[in-house]
């Protein structure tokens, strides 16, 4: 098992660089390589990083096949309105999945693929299960859900074709310090809109717990889907109250105005976040400890509390921290 070559796509993102830093501490990881359109957000000591645009397929294929990984962790997923707008997020995600997963399939040493998906793939249509387990039918009802379902489909097809184990980690919304998230930005606004008629509960997951799940799935070469969700649930109203924000009840048509105002204030509300606030988004978490041996360190309310505990500005004056 020792001396495995691990490739992490999306290593530049918060989750990618956190996963890479955890992989660097694993004894079974021999060499580590990363690809992304942005440089890593953490100092990585062992990892080798390549800054490549997802459109540059020939170079991606060249670097990946040269590295010939045993395990690939595919984190190059752009959530709409997190780091890029809808159109760019969809294009980047599609290009990266096609190029990187396709290139991994060409590597003779390849044994396992771990991909990032999300509980958005279950969709929140009327009469959809409240807490879908991994066996629930995939029926996405948002653009992000469809993007993730496409990634799962591509990975499944590649896994069947070249006989790889494919772990599909369906993450709840990832929140944590410095994680670009439209939900995180919205909840940190001074005024937080919520659905007065529904105010449905949702679950999130801490970035570190998500990264631990990826490392465990890669180490175990797990095959199949797993929901990665922090225990507990919270509603938008409750989250705003915990963060001492002003909850603004909305009933229907005024959501259009609220979304525009939030966008102007720097917190665009994509359709999957809006859907979550109205219809809720929970998932069954029974399989996670059993399949990957990972128990989330923080519950959903604790993750939200941590979101509000961020310092707005941290200034370093003569090497000492001072919070503005």
């Amino acid at each position: 098992m020792a001396g495995r070559r691990v490739l992490v796509s999306g290593m530049g993102g918060e989750l990618g660089s956190l996963t890479a830093s955890l992989l660097e501490e694993e004894s079974w990881v021999g060499s580590l390589m990363g690809i992304d359109v942005d440089p890593p957000r953490r100092r990585l000591r062992r990892a080798q990083f390549h800054l490549i645009d997802p459109k540059n397929r020939p170079r991606i294929v060249d670097e990946v096949t040269k590295f010939n990984p045993h395990v690939m962790i595919h984190l190059a997923v752009w959530e709409p309105d997190a780091r890029a707008g809808h159109a760019i997020a969809r294009r980047f995600t599609h290009d990266a999945t096609t190029a990187i997963v396709g290139a991994a399939a060409e590597c003779p040493a390849m044994e396992a693929l771990v991909i990032r998906s999300g509980i958005e793939v279950y969709g929140r249509h009327h009469h959809a299960p409240t807490r879908p387990s991994e066996t629930a039918r995939l029926d996405p009802s948002s653009e992000y859900g469809e993007m993730l379902a496409d990634i799962e489909e591509t990975a499944r097809a590649v896994g069947n074709r070249v006989k790889l184990s494919v772990a599909k980690l369906r993450l709840a919304t990832v929140l944590g310090p410095h994680v670009p998230s439209p939900l995180g930005r919205l909840l940190r606004m001074p005024f937080v809109p919520f659905s007065a008629l529904a105010d449905s509960p949702f679950a999130v997951v801490q970035d570190r717990d998500a990264a631990r799940a990826f490392v465990a799935a890669a180490a175990r070469q797990y095959d199949g889907p797993v929901n990665v969700v922090a225990p507990g649930a919270i509603t938008t109203y409750q989250a705003a109250r915990r963060g001492r924000r002003l909850p603004v009840p909305l009933i229907g048509p005024e959501w259009v105005i609220a979304r525009r105002l939030a966008h102007l204030a720097g917190a665009p509300v994509p359709d999957h976040v809006l859907e979550m606030m109205h219809r809720g988004r929970l998932a069954d978490d029974l399989l996670l400890p059993e399949a990957l041996g990972v128990v989330p360190e923080r519950s959903t309310p604790e993750v939200v509390d941590r979101l509000y505990a961020w310092e707005s500005v941290v200034r370093l004056v003569n090497g000492e921290r001072s919070v503005a």
Partner: peptide
């Protein structure tokens, strides 16, 4: 009346 109620895993 509007204390930060908590919901459980099922809401």
């Amino acid at each position: 009346l509007i204390a930060p109620f908590m919901v459980d895993d099922w809401g």
